[in-house]
């Protein structure tokens, strides 16, 4: 009697091998289920931070507009010729995204360039500072993407080659649609690809009077992009693969306008490209996530699309399979297209 009860007690305080194996197997299955979900949740969190940055930039621009009664120029080129005063778009909105300190250090009468004396070099120090609001956490580390920019000789009449150093911006100005992307998108549109295909922000070159007010967005502020994603820095991508450029094309990456203080950020007419483009980056039907080359496509590391802030301050996610007409309609501010906003 006494013996059996002690045996029963012993059995109660131990697990059998089979029980342990079953528990381990269940834990294994649970971990297997959870880990991919955790990875997806991390990317979802980064994408949310990314869309929050877009929202801040959009609100900054709208506050700039209500203060100065006009959006900032996509970029500004003042005379005299030869030694131009070239100004990027983002300097003006720095005070509206809580970067007043950086704005105070900047001298807007000199081009940020290594070649235009101490004031130009001081401006380079400002634009090579990483500003987290311009960085999408889904993209590679921002510190590693500070790059040397260049504007080749003759890019503007009489211009000698200038260089600078810039910190990345993963958000870009869509200045319009053009080229084969516009041709394909407007193939069935009455009047075709002609007419005003400008985006919201306009470049001011040689003091030409271009204004861009809220009132100029006749297509409707909810239907028009203010800014979109394009991975910045000095690396060009084909899809999400970094491209090694042949030596003859080295300047292409350095002129890609991938910095928040890089004036070329504001010269970005979307002409599309093809899937997995070669280094010639031909124009074509893809304008989302196929490449981050300026003048070709919007680009992000999110799966399946890119985010945009509209001129009403809302953020939209647009799928990579978006219809060209639908995307073009949202880039242009005055073309008057009727389109479906659902993709």
């Amino acid at each position: 009697m006494c013996l059996t009860s002690s045996l029963v007690a012993k059995r109660r305080y131990a697990f059998t091998l089979v029980e342990l194996l079953v528990v381990i197997a269940i834990i294994g299955v649970l971990v297997g289920l959870l880990l991919p979900a955790v990875q997806a949740a991390r990317e979802a969190a980064r994408r949310m931070q990314c869309s929050n940055n877009l929202k801040q930039l959009g609100l900054g621009m709208l506050n700039y507009e209500s203060t100065y009664k006009s959006f900032p120029a996509a970029y500004y080129v003042g005379e005299p010729a030869g030694r131009y005063n070239i100004q990027p778009m983002a300097i003006g909105i720095l005070p509206f995204i809580e970067q007043q300190n950086l704005a105070n250090q900047y001298n807007s009468s000199v081009t940020p360039s290594n070649d235009y004396g101490p004031a130009g070099v001081a401006n380079v120090a400002v634009i090579s500072t990483v500003v987290q609001t311009f960085v999408c956490p889904s993209a590679p580390s921002a510190q590693g993407r500070i790059y040397d920019g260049v504007l080749p000789a003759g890019s503007l009449p009489g211009l000698a080659r200038i260089t600078w150093r810039a910190a990345p911006s993963d958000y870009t100005v869509p200045t319009g649609v053009r080229g084969q992307y516009a041709n394909l998108a407007y193939a069935a549109y009455p009047g075709g690809a002609g007419g005003d295909r400008h985006g919201v922000l306009r470049a001011t070159v040689f003091n030409a009077p271009t204004t861009s007010k809220i009132g100029d967005i006749t297509d409707g502020t909810s239907n028009t992009f203010l800014l979109g994603e394009r991975t910045g820095g000095g690396t060009l991508y084909s899809g999400t693969t970094a491209v090694t450029l042949p030596a003859a094309l080295a300047d292409l990456a350095r002129s890609n306008g991938g910095g928040w203080g890089d004036a070329l950020l504001g010269e970005n007419w979307i002409a599309g490209t093809i899937g997995n483009p070669p280094t010639s980056f031909p124009e074509g039907p893809c304008a989302i996530n196929c490449t981050n080359v300026r003048g070709r496509a919007f680009h992000s590391f999110h799966t399946g699309g890119c985010q945009f802030v509209m001129a009403d301050g809302s953020v939209q996610f647009v799928s990579a399979s978006v219809d060209g007409f639908s995307l073009c309609s949202r880039v242009t501010r005055q073309k008057g297209e009727v389109f479906s906003n659902n993709d």
């Binding site: 084969q180 394909l184 069935a188 070669p278 010639s280």
Partner: peptide, 13 residues
């Protein structure tokens, strides 16, 4: 001319 339903553009360098 450009096919309005399924427009395509083919090119190469």
């Amino acid at each position: 001319g450009l096919d309005p339903k399924q427009p395509t553009y083919s090119s190469a360098f």
